[in-house]
Every structure is written in structure tokens, then in C-alpha cells.
Design a protein around this nucleic acid. Structure first.
Lengths: 216, 216
DNA sequence: CTATGTGAAGTGATTCACAGCA
DNA sequence: TGCTGTGAATCACTTCACATAG
């Protein structure tokens, strides 16, 4: 399940925003294959979408293609990365160093593209002070309110147990963080101006279960 | 990012299906708080949604409420669970026992509600034969085609590296699995009749990054 | 002749607003 | 009176189809 709240007189539709990172990944694959130019049909095939939609999505960002030719891969990747705000490093904090939190930290996939971990918090005293990866030491959750503001992350990831998540979210918001990615299976309440995305693994499985039940 | 493909002369809209597990979670919370009856407004508050939408969503499944009163919590939870196919145990296989795969296995959250792990595969020979949790031993990925059909999972979860995911998906589909939850950051191609959901952590962060860039 | 960019049409989901019922 | 269930209205996204440019 994904959910977004936040400021909205959206120029670009939310559904388009959700596809842009996928297009970007396809363009990086094309770069790796030394493909210099790609058409909307090509992007659609790689991303599992539809060519008209690719064109409309890209048109929200500007006019990057050449009629009769297609899109120059490097240039288009640059434009999408810029639209996504990936040209500046994004500072990200993690709260909750359980198995899932550890997995995210060690996952190089987004360590790469403009995302930098700047802090890791956990409430377990045994973990506090130990290395968390990336040269970071685990901080105690009690320190969160005191230390997060100066670290200045734009994004915080919550991987705490469900019962701690709202309290953590409140502290994160109070520290000025404007975007939250929550993996805890609870509905968080955040102010209007905070963007919240919810990823719930149990919800995903239940959706698949529905389709199995329906499928026969 | 989430994506669904599959058979569709959908009675129930996909967006509704995505909210049902959330409503179910709220009802379980209400049960834990010994609340016997809840209104659409109450469910909306707990789930972060809107009351009219809650009513419309539930109306796709049947007429479970009492006018002037609301919904009986236990009964509604039962109806939603049934609609989601959670009254029967769902057999789930995991492919790729890295950090993320391990985290999912150990996450009790869905071990509970109608989901049972029936097999774990990994390509690392050092892991094969070792205990994976829940009394399961890790099997080699090479065995997948031979052993998965008789284990008969309805759902498979892919947590392999990106470059292995399509091959794994092909084997899974060939083994008769009809629902796939993919965490590998690639666009998978699956036949029409297979339901695919994609969870990409990097994509989620990039979406949040967009909103930061836009927000000021 | 090819492929983009985009109004217009079509489709689907959300919200409204109220009839129906306890 | 209070709250559900639901047509009707609204809003948003997708798809079509073609003018436009190379």
C-alpha cells in the first residue's frame, strides 16, 4: 500500500511522479547498454507501460524529444533526475534498526542515486554506539529530538515496531523533516505539509490474496 | 511503486482492494480496544481516509452495516477477511534469502494472518540446507523448478538481486504460481494471468525527493 | 516517413448529497 | 435523529488521434 498526503496544487500528477523513477531506471539500463537514443515505445516496453502515457508523463516536465527521432538517453535521464531532485544529495535518516532497517541500510541501490544516510536511531541500548554501516554509529531514540534538527535530513525512514511509529513520526516532524517513508504497519497522522508514503508488506500480500481468491 | 497486471473484469475496483487490508487492520485495532461497533467516520479516522469512500468501498462487498448504528466490528472484519481470501491459509514461497528476504521471513506481521511460508530458495551454496526460520531449510535455486510445483504456493516473493529476478520469475510462473510480489528493482514481464505487485524502495525515496524539490 | 507533443474523448475513481431504514 | 447505501456529479487519469516537426 502506498499513500501520500501533502501540499498539493500539483503541476505534475501524482501518478506521473510515481512512474518517473521507473523511467529513470530504464534509461540507466539503456545507458549501460550504450543505447544513445530511445523512443517512447522503447521506454514503454522497458518500463511495462504505454507509449502515449510515457510521452504525456514526460511532457509535464518539458519538451525533451526530437520529432521523428526520439529521446536522447543521457539528456532525458538528466532531466528526470533533476525533476526528481536527485541532482542534490538527499539526506536520509533511519529510525528502527531491526532486520528491515538493517536491510535498507545495506541496500546499495539507493545509497547510490543521490541518497545519503545521515543518522540511524534505535531504542535498544545494546545497539546504541555500535557501527550501523556507512561510518555511522547508532544513536539512541531518546536523542532524536535533540540531534535530528542539526543533521537536517529531508527524508526519514521509519522501520520501528508499529506501537512506536506514531511517537517517532511526531518527533521527526517536530525536527523539521518534510518527507516520511513508513514501513510500520500503522496509519500515521502527520501535518498537511508533510509528505507521507506508506509501504506495508502485509498489505501487499493481502492484495495478492484477494486476486487469488477472485481468480478462481 | 506498485503495479498490477492480471485478469480483470473487476467487480471491485483495484483502488478499493488496496484499501481493504487497511480497514481490516483498523478493525483489528478496534477489537483490541474492545470496541463492538464502529461507524464509517470512525473507520475513516483510523485509516486516514474519508467516510463516504469507506462506505462505498464496503458496499462493493455487500451490505454489512446497520443504518443509524454503524458496523459490527467482528462481523465486518470477518467479511473483509473472507473477501481477501484470508479465511484459507495462503502458501507463500520466498526466493532470495539476503538481508531483505531474512527480514520478511522473520517479520511475524503476516506470518499471522493467513500466510504460511512453505519454501525458501537461495542461490548461495553456503546457505542451502541451513535453517531459514519457521522450520524450513533453505533450498538451492536450481531446485526451484523441480520442487515448487508440489509445494503449491499461490504467492511467491522475489528478493533476489535485480539481475536474477526475471529468470526467477519465469521459473515461478512455470511452476504455476499466480501471484508475485517483487522487491527487485526491475520491471518483470509476466503472462496476463499472473498478478504482479512491485515494491521498490528506491522508487519510494525518489518520489519523496520529488516532493521535497517541489515543496520549496 | 517517423516519432513527439497535446487537445479532445473516454474511462474510472472520488465526493457529494440524499433517500431509506433503524 | 443518526448513519448506511448509492445514484449523480465531479474530478483525475488514461488513451486516442492527429497536427507538427525533423
Amino acid at each position: 500500500m502506498t499513500q501520500v498526503t501533502g501540499e498539493h496544487v500539483n503541476q505534475v500528477p501524482e501518478t506521473t511522479i510515481e512512474r518517473l523513477p521507473v523511467y529513470l531506471r530504464c534509461l540507466h539500463e539503456a545507458q549501460a547498454m550504450r543505447i544513445p537514443v530511445i523512443s517512447s515505445v522503447g521506454i514503454a516496453q522497458m518500463s511495462g507501460g504505454n507509449a502515449a502515457q510515457v510521452r504525456k508523463d514526460l511532457s509535464y516536465l518539458g519538451e525533451f524529444g526530437t520529432r521523428g527521432i526520439g529521446y536522447e538517453v543521457d539528456s532525458l535521464a538528466g532531466h528526470i533526475a533533476k525533476a526528481l531532485g536527485l541532482t542534490q544529495q538527499r539526506r536520509v535518516a533511519l529510525v528502527g534498526l531491526g532486520r528491515l532497517g538493517s536491510a535498507l541500510l545495506s541496500y546499495g541501490g539507493f545509497g547510490d542515486r543521490g541518497m545519503t544516510w545521515v543518522a540511524v536511531y534505535d531504542s535498544d541500548p545494546d545497539k546504541v554506539g555500535t557501527p550501523a554501516g556507512g561510518g555511522l554509529l547508532v544513536r539512541g531514540s531518546a536523542e532524536l529530538a535533540a540531534t535530528l534538527p542539526e543533521l537536517g535530513p529531508g527524508i526519514a525512514v521509519i522501520t520501528t515496531p508499529a506501537n512506536a511509529a506514531q511517537e517517532v513520526a511526531d518527533a521527526i516532524v517536530a525536527a523539521g523533516v518534510r518527507s516520511i517513508l513508513n514501513f510500520a504497519p500503522v496509519t500515521l497522522e502527520v501535518p498537511e505539509h508533510v509528505t507521507l508514503r506508506q509501504v506495508d508488506l502485509s498489505v501487499e500480500l493481502q492484495i495478492l490474496s484477494f486476486h487469488l481468491a477472485e481468480g478462481s
